[in-house]
Amino acid sequence: MSIMKLIGDNGIVISHETNLSVDAALDITCSKLIEQGKVEPSYLAAIKAKHKEIGAYYVLAPKIAMPHARPEDGVNEQALQITIFKNGVNLESEDNGDVYFSVTLAAMDSDSHIQTIMALAELFQNDEDVDAIIAADNEAAIAEILNKY
């Protein structure tokens, strides 16, 4: 399944907020998924709880995060939400600095999202596309790049 199919028509958020707390940033990264009923609020709570327990486990590389929890924590439908933090956000990752590009992953089980992870890994390795997504001014420009994956 393509990345854009999992994002849907209303799954890209561009945030211009500054000085966000970790909790406020995570609220934004799950906002559309919760709003659309793709995940329950308990899913966001599980991400926050795991962060408090072990830190920013979901910050994958400089600029990039992939917040996620277990399917049983409240996933109703396999989905992705893309969040761009135009001013960056400190998610307390000692090794990777501020996050600008977040992909919230909601998977129904351990296996069904393997192809999605492979497509995202390909995207994350393409610095040019990652930087273009972060620099994009609107959702359509972001979707155009994501349609390649």
Rank of each mutant, 00 (worst) to 15 (best):
V89P: 00
L123V: 08
I7V: 06
A136G: 07
N19I: 13
A79H: 08
N10G: 08
T104R: 05
Y149K: 12
M66C: 02
F124K: 02
V99N: 02
S2G: 07
A121G: 10
H16K: 09
Y100L: 03
E122C: 13
A79Y: 12
S31L: 06
K32A: 05
I142L: 10
L33S: 04
D129G: 03
L123M: 11
I145K: 09
I142G: 01
S112Q: 04
M1H: 11
A79W: 12
D95M: 15
L146Y: 11
M108R: 15
A45C: 12
E139P: 04
Q78C: 08
I142N: 02
S31C: 02
D131S: 11
Y43R: 13
Y43N: 09
D27P: 06
K52S: 10
I34G: 01
P41G: 06
D23Y: 13
H68S: 03
H68W: 12
V13N: 02
A143R: 12
D27Y: 14
I145E: 04
T18R: 14
I7E: 00
K50E: 14
L105G: 00
A132S: 13
D137K: 14
D127F: 10
A119D: 07
G11K: 02
A135S: 05
A24M: 09
L80F: 07
F124S: 00
N126L: 04
I14P: 05
I117L: 13
Q78D: 09
E40F: 05
V59R: 05
Q81A: 02
S21G: 11
L26S: 00
E72Y: 15
G74I: 09
P41T: 08
A45S: 12
S110M: 14
P67E: 05
A135M: 10
I114L: 09
Y43W: 15
I14A: 06
E94W: 15
T29H: 02
N90M: 04
D73P: 03
D111P: 07
N96G: 13
Q115V: 15
I82G: 01
G88H: 06
T104S: 05
L120M: 07
I117S: 06
V103H: 05
G11S: 00
D95Q: 15
S2K: 15
K38Q: 11
M1K: 10
S15F: 08
L33M: 14
E139C: 07
I64K: 01
N138A: 04
T83D: 02
K52C: 07
E128L: 07
E92R: 15
A107C: 09
L123R: 10
E122R: 15
A49M: 12
L91K: 01
I82Q: 04
G97C: 06
L80A: 03
V99A: 01
I82C: 05
E139L: 07
A140K: 13
L60P: 00
K5G: 06
A65L: 05
L6S: 01
H68K: 11
C30M: 08
S2L: 14
R70H: 14
L120W: 06
I142R: 07
D95R: 15
K86Y: 04
A24D: 13
N147P: 00
L105P: 02
A56E: 05
I145F: 08
K48F: 10
F124C: 00
V89M: 00
L20G: 01
I145L: 10
Y149E: 09
E53Q: 14
L33F: 10
L91R: 04
L120V: 09
A24V: 08
H51C: 12
A119P: 00
L123W: 09
L91S: 04
